[in-house]
Design a binder for these strands. Structure first.
Length: 187
DNA sequence: CCCAGGATTGACT
DNA sequence: GTCAATCCTGGGA
């Protein structure tokens, strides 16, 4: 049976633990979304993390309470959604298997095949309608909703994608063999 | 103040 | 496989 996650302490832990535990849970924004199939962890002493050099105007949410969204603009055109964990750490939500409000997501994504609706951090924010307006907002409760899952999916682990610093760290986690990953895992 | 460089995507060869 | 789009951030001068 599934239940709605309401405990913000779930997130007040190391990002790596949260990143693993989020796999298989369902993430919704205004009712649209699906099952989380890919995450990445960014932590306080991580050169690849936006929080690495301390608090700035952009990354302020990462230094706030756990369980809130950290949304930033990537490459000047995409939004990326993180959930803040223990101080100065966060989990980047990289891909969902779309399940809810498919029509709304298909429309926002321009009629692309379902496999590509939420298969990437920029793609899923576009599909869900998440923007910088959500930076710093609670992810426990409306307009977000996170549903727990009793099932523990078979997990794949690998290096994070698209970074140059600390590129060897194995902090990317995915549901093994999901067709909705942004990229396949090596092994 | 300046400007190199992105936690990406989609189009194209 | 390669590459441009697009714009904001923030480190360094």
């Amino acid at each position: 049976m599934t239940t709605v996650l309401r405990d913000r302490d779930f997130f007040n832990r190391p990002a790596e633990s949260v990143a693993r535990d989020l796999l298989g849970m369902t993430l919704l924004f205004r009712g649209a979304g699906g099952v989380i199939v890919e995450t990445e962890a960014y932590h306080r002493h991580d050169p690849a993390s936006h929080s690495y050099r301390g608090r700035t105007p952009r990354n302020g949410a990462m230094f706030g309470p756990a369980g809130r969204a950290y949304v930033y603009r990537s490459y000047g055109m995409h939004w990326c959604l993180n959930v803040v964990c223990e101080p100065a750490s966060a989990v980047l939500i990289r891909a969902l298997a779309p399940t809810e409000k498919l029509d709304a997501m298909r429309e926002r994504r321009g009629g692309l095949p379902d496999r590509l609706l939420c298969a990437g951090p920029g793609r899923l924010t576009e599909a869900l309608g998440v923007t910088g307006a959500e930076d710093g907002t609670e992810m426990i409760g409306f307009p977000f909703e996170i549903r727990t899952s009793p099932a523990r999916p078979d997990m794949a682990i690998g290096p994070r994608i698209g970074i140059t610093k600390a590129a060897e760290e194995l902090l990317r986690f995915g549901v093994r063999n999901s067709p909705y990953l942004s990229k396949p895992f090596r092994s």
